[in-house]
């Protein structure tokens, strides 16, 4: 408890206006007087939607030791109120007394989706769309974000209200835990019931992580949110190469070269050993004109040719430009290369 009090002192006791601390000025230059209250009052009025649900106050949030610990662990800084973190951990529930994280999650989702998309397009501009979507999903999908949430050390509120009452816990102590209506119930040992209402634990973690990102944007600005995404989401390793699969690589390579006005692929046996043994090895090179596009080896010429074509396609689709600065980086001066699209046959 002593350490708890110590941590409280770090956070300033000045009252923070809830969600009114967009620290950085809005970056795009909006044309003068386009959307002012005076000029478009009715348009502006469409954006007013004050929820009647009460929000968790900073004073209430400070009563949760696990919330303070999570705040410190994520190094969110003094600009990020504990109340926002408490809201980020509160999912929509049937008997919810406080405003949930659904709005924050929406903001976070859009931010993370854009930054991951631009990052993937910058890094791998030629990926086929199906692989591209899979790779983006590997960063921002439920599985990925839920594991990020678990790595953050977010705990799930598993106690029922009656258990909490019996153990003498107050409502405020649960603000530091992930609260949601679970879709899965266990009516008896070894039996799981999947209900229609509620969400799974993974989805709840996903909402919490997105909401924390949304909160970082609101209170610390866009550059801090981008840094947060870089550190916690984009730092994860995704093996894009293993996602590429080709059913008919030779035909696909032919179409690709034809579209780029290059000579059709020619396979040439470059080396072989043990042709008359039980374990022959052939090395086949796939050429377009004089250029070697890919090389493959196999126990038959056909297998080696196919592997050569696959390697040639991989070399094309996994191309990475030298400049990996994303378009949102102000230091990027040259245009971003975006592929012309994959070929079909």
């Amino acid at each position: 408890m002593a350490s708890h009090r110590g941590m409280v002192r770090v956070i300033p006791r000045t009252s923070v206006r809830f969600f009114k601390t967009l620290t950085e000025p809005y970056s795009p230059t909006i044309s003068t007087d386009l959307y002012t209250q005076e000029k478009e009052p009715r348009f502006i009025s469409l954006f007013q939607n004050d929820s009647r649900l009460k929000t968790i106050t900073e004073e209430e949030a400070k009563l949760s030791p696990s919330l303070i610990a999570l705040h410190a662990r994520l190094n969110l800084g003094q600009d990020f109120p504990l109340a926002t973190l408490a809201r980020a951990l509160t999912c929509d529930t049937k008997d919810g007394q406080h405003a949930s994280n659904s709005s924050l999650s929406q903001v976070g989702k859009r931010l993370v989706k854009y930054h991951v998309t631009e990052n993937m397009i910058t890094k791998y501009p030629r990926l086929p769309i199906a692989v591209f979507s899979k790779a983006v999903n590997a960063y921002v999908g439920t599985e990925s974000l839920s594991s990020v949430g678990r790595l953050f050390g977010i705990e799930v509120e598993s106690k029922s209200p009656i258990d909490k009452y019996l153990s003498g816990e107050t409502l405020e102590t649960s603000f530091g835990k992930l609260r949601f209506d679970s879709a899965i119930s266990k009516p008896e040992s070894g039996v799981k019931h999947y209900g229609k209402e509620g969400i799974t634990e993974d989805v709840a973690y996903k909402f919490a992580v997105r909401s924390i990102i949304g909160g970082v944007y609101l209170h610390k600005g866009e550059s801090a949110a981008k840094k947060f995404i870089d550190e916690y989401i984009l730092s994860r390793k995704v093996d894009v190469e293993s996602m590429l699969k080709f059913e008919q690589p030779q035909r696909m390579l032919l179409r690709l070269l034809r579209r780029n006005n290059l000579p059709a692929p020619v396979s040439k046996l470059m080396a072989e050993t043990g042709r008359h043994s039980v374990a022959p090895v052939y090395v086949v090179g796939v050429f377009s004109g004089d250029s070697l596009l890919g090389e493959g080896q196999g126990s038959s010429i056909r297998e080696a040719t196919m592997r050569g074509a696959v390697n040639a396609l991989k070399a094309h689709y996994l191309y990475r430009p030298l400049n990996e600065r994303v378009p949102s980086d102000p230091e990027r001066k040259e245009p971003l290369y975006v592929d012309e699209g994959e070929v079909y046959f």
Binding site: Q37, S51, A99, S103
Partner: peptide, 15 residues
Amino acid sequence: VSKARDVVDVVNSTG
């Protein structure tokens, strides 16, 4: 700009 009480709640607005 319009000084809403809870800025993030704008996500649920009609606009």
